[in-house]
Design a protein around this nucleic acid. Structure first.
Lengths: 214, 214
DNA sequence: ATAAAAACTAAACAGTTGTTTGAATTAAAC
DNA sequence: GTTTAATTCAAACAACTGTTTAGTTTTTAT
């Protein structure tokens, strides 16, 4: 059996079954807060299967990241090649980010939570490359807008991603607080608020920051 | 030695010693990732002392939050009463937030990490009240600016805090990435970047979002 | 100096942790 | 149909978890 990290998503059904349960539990209770026995119970498999298929709990996490983040780059490249005004590209990029993170909440929560501490820095490499690529795409769009004289030139481009993603994450990480504050009683209301108001707020913010007013 | 400093909190020296070690370790490795024996070893105390002084590991966390967040409200109230233009108040508020979080990274990292999962919702009450108070202060300032015709009226006020704090957190949570990207080789350079560029970026962003342009 | 209270300790408790083992079952190859 | 390989399993492993206990030392009050 192949216990090494698999770069493409050539996971078999059993592995995917384990990965998806792990995603749910890691997202819910954190990596350290989730035990292999817990995963095994929910996935209805034997405890030994995690070691058998992935080698270790740590490598299960690595595999999960590969499994979930392999196609973001393509989506971004497609966006770049569309024939749109820079500001519309930015708006679409924000929408893409939020949609993607919102419909893959589990893995992004895990990434957000687990990949900050020093102890997982060795696994950070692939994730870091992904982030650099994303930044490059954003940079391309903004420089295009600056050349056209539409965008200001005194913005710090690498800090725009933190504003986009940070706003979303901070909102989402404080879900119970905002559910209560904004009366979003059902999951549907909450999701709808993200899709409309939160997305609009972020777009409005980034636009205000970028657009040059004479 | 200097007992006059701890006028407010009713924790004794030993408790504070434990709390500060716990803060460091919880921030570094998370609540679940830190064991009582680990805390005891670093704090050079017996394992039983945590139970003795705080009752349980969970209650140690609660005490830590009380110990670290008890004086934020006063700082905000003082700011509100200053005689400043709304936009200057906003800028000062952003500076206050960032300074405070930045010099209490440990506890805010813990709050950020531990108080999102459902399982700690019972401890969430006090923290939630603190956040609501903070939002009220921000609201007061913004409404003042709107009355004066300086601020736009179509901004969603509860989403401004996520933009301020989210930007900072996302930057700080991805510290290794940005250290590398922006060549912030020393801790001093990193801190300086936060104090100048990141703070300015956030102020610039919020100003752009708020200021009404005819 | 003596008694009561507080602080501290090593050891034990009962669970849980990630991982490995060796045998049993199933599937694939011949 | 037999052999070989892949999969699954219960059980065991040693290490670690939060907490309690019962006894000792230190501090405080009288």
């Amino acid at each position: 059996m192949n216990k090494s990290i698999q770069l493409k998503s050539n996971f078999n059904e059993k592995q995917i079954q384990i990965l998806e349960v792990a995603e749910t539990l890691f997202a819910e209770k954190g990596f350290d807060g989730t035990s292999i026995r817990n995963i095994a119970k929910v996935a209805k498999i034997n405890v030994a299967m995690v070691s058998y298929y992935f080698g270790s709990k740590e490598r299960l996490l690595e595999s999960l990241i590969v499994y979930r983040t392999s196609d973001l780059k393509n989506q971004l490249d497609n966006l770049l090649q569309e024939d749109l005004e820079p500001i519309d590209k930015i708006n679409k990029l924000i929408e893409l980010y939020i949609n993607r993170i919102n419909s893959n909440r589990g893995i992004y929560r895990i990434l957000h939570f687990e990949f900050t501490s020093k102890k997982r820095e060795q696994n950070l490499q692939a994730f870091s490359e992904l982030k650099k690529g994303n930044l490059k795409s954003l940079e391309t769009i903004i420089e295009e807008g600056q050349k056209k004289g539409i965008f200001r030139k005194d913005v710090i481009i690498p800090l725009i991603t933190p504003t986009i993603l940070g706003t979303f994450f901070h909102f989402h990480m404080n879900k119970p607080f905002f559910e209560n504050l904004l009366n979003l009683k059902t999951e549907d209301l909450y999701n709808n608020y993200i899709k409309t108001n939160l997305t609009k707020h972020i777009q409005q913010t980034i636009k205000a920051l970028l657009i040059y007013e004479s």
